[in-house]
């Protein structure tokens, strides 16, 4: 491995790790405190909850799994639900993959495959913002550094939730839950750079909640597909108009 590649790896990893110590770290706390409490309620062991966090690294999927365990669903039904809950990762890794692999890539492909283990809503949105200003060789390591630190923080938070977070006062509890939407409102609507992004925001904000009224299971997937496709078509049409 050439020396530059090693230092790019370290630079990217450290930068990602450092970034995980900011607001995203807090976000993880909020989400996984809730997951920890839910796991203890469902009668799962702490080790199971912690391993699910480390291995799956997908809060919605973990919640689906626990939920299905509580209702004693069959293995097949549970797998199918978790499978569908993870479809959202596909467009995320399809968009991040080429940016990670731009790094010249004599055999560097494995890094992208490892790095995407930590692609989740938060890290995806942050990476989309950061990657354009980052050397390509540092992108996969950035995701690994970010993911490893977030996972460690999440396991600690899961423990806090598991071993008794029921005693927080209400204002703190709802504040923690609201961390996630507040963060995303800013990340998504804070600096809208392109027309396609603006159209996607508007269409997604309408399609997601509207479809939720129709089907809770399918709203996330269909909201993205329908909202995103309409947005794509709209910005295409818009671009085609004479200025």
């Amino acid at each position: 491995m050439p020396a530059t590649s090693t230092s790019d790896f370290r630079l990217g990893f450290v930068q990602g790790a450092r970034e995980a110590c900011g607001v995203p770290g807090l976000l993880m706390s909020a989400g996984f405190i809730g997951f920890g409490s839910m796991a203890s309620d469902a009668g799962a062991t702490f080790v199971f909850a912690a391993l699910a966090t480390i291995l799956m690294w997908a809060l919605p999927g973990q919640v689906v799994m626990l939920d299905m365990m509580t209702v004693k669903a069959t293995l097949f039904a549970t797998l199918l639900a978790v499978f569908f809950s993870a479809v959202r990762f596909l467009p995320m890794t399809v968009t991040l993959g080429p940016q990670m692999r731009m790094a010249g890539n004599s055999g560097g492909g494995w890094r992208a495959y490892l790095a995407v283990q930590w692609v989740a809503t938060t890290s995806w949105a942050l990476a989309m913002q950061r990657y354009p200003n980052m050397p390509a060789a540092q992108r996969a390591p950035w995701m690994m550094g970010f993911g490893v630190v977030c996972t460690l923080v999440a396991v600690v938070c899961c423990a806090i939730g598991y071993f008794g977070a029921d005693n927080f006062p209400r204002a703190i509890r709802i504040g923690l839950i609201f961390l996630m939407p507040a963060f995303f409102v800013i990340l998504l609507a804070g600096d809208v750079r392109t027309r396609a992004m603006a159209a996607s925001l508007v269409c997604g904000a309408i399609a997601g909640p509207a479809l939720y009224l129709w089907s809770r299971e399918w709203s996330v997937m269909l909201g993205g597909l329908i909202g995103g496709t309409v947005a794509y078509a709209a910005q295409k049409f818009w671009k085609g108009l004479p200025a």
């Binding site: 925001l201 904000a205 996330v220 794509y232």
Partner: peptide, 17 residues
């Protein structure tokens, strides 16, 4: 570009909800 639109719309939908 389309995949990017879908991903943004998906996340925005979740947050809006």
């Amino acid at each position: 570009r389309w995949a990017e639109c879908v991903a943004y719309a998906m996340i925005t939908g979740i947050i809006a909800r």
